[in-house]
Structure formats: structure tokens, C-alpha cells
Design a protein around this nucleic acid. Structure first.
Length: 381
DNA sequence: CGAGCTCCCCGCCAAA
DNA sequence: TTTTTGGCGGGGAGCT
């Protein structure tokens, strides 16, 4: 059976979704995927090739309308202005916003702001972010850009001059130091670029967190961008499953949402760069010595200070205790290894400095409500 | 699941 | 006098 894939391959999320779809096709073996551009012409082309259904990943509206006119079974990977009644598998935007807020609050930032393009999905994640921030008793100004008619406001990390000026003015007026949440990596890039031009240091005066975790875009800024990693592969896989159900005539939910995976921390939100040098040294040591078993007493000795002072100053700057932070670093590394390698949970526990795999599992479960194996399975499929 | 043990957090106080 | 520091120890969390 032929299935058409029409996706904007310049967007990291859609590329990831394609990988998930490919995995699904590999497993069932009777799907032939044919790719084309996410346009009305592309749709015509895959129909000529005999596609029985399509998965659409684009922010344009026309291809969806065309697919509807042709009565071609369609699953969308999420679009800012979806036609009503379109079957969609996409991010849990509320969970994305909440994860971002929770992370930045834990980094102990004191002022927050968020910016996005006005539109369904971006609005939702930024709104959820702002709500979570306000719930903690802090203000969160939001800049929501109207998109230009029919197109993306943000292509290749560039805004038109008027929008850029507005964003720049907005950034300059924010109460600093501030943590800014951006609806996508491209906007994160623009915010980083404008901050540089305004002479504002990142993350000292402006910390930046975005969404999509596009390795390339995140690496382009200096310092590199922290970003919420969304479950693109998983979304693609589920989209494929949904289309398969649809093609076999079964009822499918109109909307399926998948929560994000984790926050990938890079330098743009590194709170340890500011404040107490003793604490900064402690954090640096922890990051480098995950397997170190000497405990907090030993750490205090290494840093040549009393244990009590370390604890007190640590709490002051980071809002948490040394041991707590140390296991947090261990868990972050474990997350990374689970996603990026095929090492056994046993080995990962050891590499991250947990006594055994039960130690890792217990902490992991407490932190994100999921076992390590389950975490790996969900992110990959 | 629980006993025993170790490690850690944090209030308190005296000293610097 | 006020502020910061280090030591003490109860109590709790987590590990074996």
C-alpha cells in the first residue's frame, strides 16, 4: 500500500516525525512511503502514484484543504491553523509549556517572559507557560506576533524588519535578569541574536529556552540554546498507526497529543554562571564527578569549606540542597544516555554514579513518574 | 516489608 | 551590635 508523506523537511519536528513513520513502515512491511513537497502539487503527485492516504506536516493550509476536497484519508502532524475536523497527532502543548515553566522556576530565575507567533499551537504552549509561571506568583509578559497572511512569520531564523524591531524593543524593556521562553528554536535564535545586538549577556541578563531541540539551530548561538525536546519520532509513529486505523475503516480520535520528552540544558539557561563562586565550583565539580562517592562531606573538603557553609550558600543560590542537585545531574546524564545510546540500564546506572539499577529506577520514577526503560521506549518507539 | 544503618538537611547556638 | 561562620545533633529519608 502506498502512503504519501508530505512534510516540510526544513522543520526539525517534521524530520523527527518522518523517522517515526519510517520505523512504523519497517515494522509492518506492507507500506511503501512516497515523499513529496507539502503543497497542492505534491499532493496531486502522490495521488497519481496511487497513495491511499497521506501524512501531512506543514504550516500551510492549502494542502489540507486539497486533501479534503479529494477525500483522501489524512493525518496531520500539527498545524497552526488546521481546518476543522482534521485528524491530528501532535504535541501536548500544555505539557510543553508546563515543562518549560517548571524547569525555569527550578533554575531559580526570578523574572519571566514569553514570545511566540499568534496561532493555535504556539499560543497554547506559551499560554500554558505563562499560566504556570503566574501560578507561582510571578508575572509573565507575553509578546504574541501576528503572522503575516498565509505564511510563516519566521523562516530561517529571520523576521521582517518591523517585527524584529518590535521584538527588540520588547526585549529591551523587560525587567532583567529575565528568562525568556520562545515557542520554537528559530525564535530562540532571533532572541539570542537581538540580545547580542542590544549588548545583553546570555544567560546573565537574558536566559533563553526554546522548543524543538533542533541540534543545528541550538548550536548556532553562543552560548548554545537550551530547548524542550519534543517527542517527534513518537508522534510520527502514532500518526502512522492512526492513519492505518483510518484506512482499515476504524474510528480514530480526532486529536491525539503526546507530551514532550525532556529539557535539554545548554548554556543559555545555565544559572550557575551567576552568583556565588563557591556554589559555582560545587556545581562544576558535581557535573564532572557523577561517579564520585565521597558524599557531601567529601565535597566540602575538596572545596575547602565547611559542610554547613556549603549547604547554606548552596540553598541560597540554587534553592535546593547539594545532594539533591547532585542526583539531579546524575538523572540528567542518565536521561541523555537512555536516549542517545543502547547501553543497558544497569551500565547507565553505574556510569551515572548510582549504586545499582534500582537506585536509578527509584530516583527516575520519583522525578518523572516513569521507569528508565519506559522513558527510553516512549521517546523512541 | 521492616530492622538497622548511613547520609543528609536544617535549626540552633556560640564564636569570629 | 550586627552579620557571617562552623560545629552539633535531632530527625528524617533512603539504602542494604
Amino acid at each position: 500500500m502506498r502512503i504519501g508523506l508530505l512534510a516540510d523537511m526544513g522543520v526539525e519536528h517534521f524530520r523527527g516525525a518522518m523517522r517515526g513513520i519510517a520505523e512504523y513502515a519497517r515494522r509492518r512491511n506492507d507500506w511503501q512511503l512516497c515523499r513529496s513537497s507539502p503543497t497542492v502539487d505534491g499532493l496531486r503527485r502522490v495521488m497519481e502514484l496511487g497513495a491511499k492516504g497521506v501524512i501531512l506536516g506543514t504550516i500551510e493550509r492549502e494542502p489540507f484543504m486539497a486533501a479534503r476536497v479529494e477525500e483522501l484519508p489524512t493525518v496531520s502532524l500539527g498545524a497552526p491553523y488546521p481546518p476543522a475536523g482534521l485528524c491530528t497527532v501532535t504535541h501536548d502543548e500544555v505539557a510543553v509549556g508546563r515543562m518549560a515553566a517548571e524547569y525555569l522556576l527550578r533554575q531559580r530565575f526570578t523574572h519571566f517572559a514569553a514570545c511566540c507567533t499568534a496561532g493555535k499551537s504556539q499560543d497554547e504552549r506559551v499560554t500554558a507557560f505563562a499560566e504556570a509561571i503566574r501560578k507561582s506568583g510571578r508575572d509573565c509578559p507575553v509578546l504574541s506576533e501576528d503572522p503575516p497572511e498565509g505564511a510563516s512569520a519566521l523562516v530561517g531564523g529571520q523576521l521582517d524588519l518591523a517585527r524584529e524591531q518590535r521584538l527588540s524593543d520588547w526585549l529591551e524593556r523587560l525587567v532583567r535578569p529575565v528568562a525568556v521562553f520562545c515557542d520554537c528554536d528559530e525564535r530562540g535564535w532571533v532572541v539570542a541574536e537581538l540580545s547580542r545586538r542590544l549588548g545583553l549577556s546570555v544567560p546573565g541578563e537574558i536566559a533563553i529556552l526554546s522548543v524543538d531541540n533542533d541540534e543545528t539551530v541550538c548550536a548556532l548561538t553562543n552560548p548554545a540554546l537550551s530547548s524542550v525536546q519534543v517527542a517527534s519520532e513518537h508522534i510520527g509513529y502514532v500518526a502512522a498507526e492512526t492513519l492505518a486505523l483510518k484506512l482499515s475503516g476504524q474510528a480514530v480520535p480526532l486529536l491525539t497529543t503526546i507530551p514532550p520528552v525532556r529539557v535539554v540544558e545548554r548554556r543559555s539557561t545555565d544559572a550557575s554562571l551567576t552568583g556565588d563562586p563557591l556554589v559555582a565550583r560545587a556545581l562544576g565539580f558535581m557535573r564532572k564527578s557523577l561517579r564520585d562517592k565521597q558524599g557531601i562531606d567529601g565535597l566540602a573538603q575538596t572545596l575547602a569549606c565547611s559542610r554547613r557553609s556549603l549547604e547554606r550558600r548552596f540553598l541560597e543560590v540554587t534553592g535546593t540542597s547539594p545532594a539533591n542537585m547532585w542526583t539531579r545531574f546524575r538523572l540528567l546524564e542518565a536521561q541523555r544516555l537512555l536516549l542517545e545510546t543502547d547501553l543497558s540500564v544497569e551500565l547507565i546506572s553505574d556510569l551515572c554514579g548510582f549504586s545499582d539499577s534500582r537506585g536509578l529506577s527509584a530516583n527516575f520514577r520519583k522525578q518523572m513518574g516513569l521507569t528508565p526503560t519506559e522513558f527510553r521506549r516512549r521517546a523512541r518507539l
